[in-house]
Design a protein around this nucleic acid. Sequence first.
DNA 1: GTGGTCTAGACCACA
DNA 2: GTGGTCTAGACCACC
Lengths: 140, 140, 140, 140
Amino acid sequence: MQIEIDPLSPVPLYQQLRDRVVEGIAGGTLRPGDQLAPVRQLAARFGINVATVSKGYDLLRAEGLVRSNRSAGSVVARGPRSATAEEAAWSSADRDAWAGRLATVLAEGVAQGEQDETIVAAAKEILSGFAAQRRNGGER
Amino acid sequence: MQIEIDPLSPVPLYQQLRDRVVEGIAGGTLRPGDQLAPVRQLAARFGINVATVSKGYDLLRAEGLVRSNRSAGSVVARGPRSATAEEAAWSSADRDAWAGRLATVLAEGVAQGEQDETIVAAAKEILSGFAAQRRNGGER
Amino acid sequence: MQIEIDPLSPVPLYQQLRDRVVEGIAGGTLRPGDQLAPVRQLAARFGINVATVSKGYDLLRAEGLVRSNRSAGSVVARGPRSATAEEAAWSSADRDAWAGRLATVLAEGVAQGEQDETIVAAAKEILSGFAAQRRNGGER
Amino acid sequence: MQIEIDPLSPVPLYQQLRDRVVEGIAGGTLRPGDQLAPVRQLAARFGINVATVSKGYDLLRAEGLVRSNRSAGSVVARGPRSATAEEAAWSSADRDAWAGRLATVLAEGVAQGEQDETIVAAAKEILSGFAAQRRNGGER
DNA sequence: GTGGTCTAGACCACA
DNA sequence: GTGGTCTAGACCACC
């Protein structure tokens, strides 16, 4: 998968990395079982420090999206459909926090004068973009 | 309007302040032309520094949501429907950046296993919450 | 509070720090609202790196036991009795993981020939030790 | 006995193996005198390296739970009740270390808001689970 | 070769 | 002055 990070962004590098991986999982570029690039390799590619990449992976691990194995590298642990009833993917607190973040982003659109329908349409478009990617085997 | 900020949140105070004002505008608690509380008063109410409040207002000004006059203090410049006529609300770059933030939040939900329909429903619920507030005259 | 860490232990330093703080919270030495020592100060006291202390605080933050504030330091967020029904302190997955760790430790005692009653007694003693500390105002 | 190990767990494989054997002894699946599976066989079954299995057995030997004879392979040396008569089961240092680990786990429960009674109940339930297994001849 | 841990710095953001 | 971010290294544990 081809991901980019922006060293000039105010968003921390490890956070950007985490965001890109999350998007990759949502879009099916990264599927459960897929290997993530080794921390060193990723660090070299982006010209950033290993520890920074590692911290990004830490986040993903904490979210349950990735699992790491000292010898076999890191693999994607979860995907768009792997959440079942038995293994509650999200704690309710985490889901609430997510809903709060969503509300803040949506409020921004509303405040800027976007119509509700336009916003919903934008969200649907993004989601169907992810879905289309998944159907195409994760190709961009 | 009654807003709350959490000094222990990882989100910077000025950012929280900005977020709450944005939500106030989206929900109609704050309408175009309304005065924002003077920085000193707000700083006193929250027990935080004037500079922090000021920085939050700066953000809102940069986003075009608030306008400051020497004499009249800060007033809300834009509202849920004012974009259509008054002025070009967003630069396309700003809109794109917003869409990117939205995509990141949505991707998180997808990656955690939420169904697309569930996510759209959550978004609609949030938006209709704002709309209901506006109809009620911004009362919570 | 007086805590010690052992640089020769196989347990990572940041993990030891986290364990000691958890025990401090259980024993009431650290109560909700109490300030934790600044990372730099703790690092200097133990002769370890700031990043290491920081990682320990990261863990505690992830567990919801501590909250940090850039300017005002880190404070204890939760205590032996602050878990109420509304704010589900633990996700069920976290609780299950904890029960698993408990089972492993108990199995060890059983395998080494300790009687069940002896083990339960040991556990009760530890717990009442914590409770006694809390009653004594967290004094050791 | 049927044991499972998870290659993606943060817990080292040899440690998992050791934990499972300890639990097997506690639950009576493995009784004093029983043979442990040969390292090669176990390694093949799990698809892991012989050295890894060997390291797990080393731990058990160091804890006095397993004894290795040149000819007879590794046999379980101790069981839930063999401590009383046969030999001094634990050095007091080992027992203290174990109590420390137990205290850390219990502290975590307390800090997360579990009631002492709930914790004791959980421990009793785990212990009686082991006892029940032993009565059933170690069958799961 | 993989990730995990740790050091000794530095600079920045926040309040 | 607080924590957050990041670097450039090093060594270790695991497999």
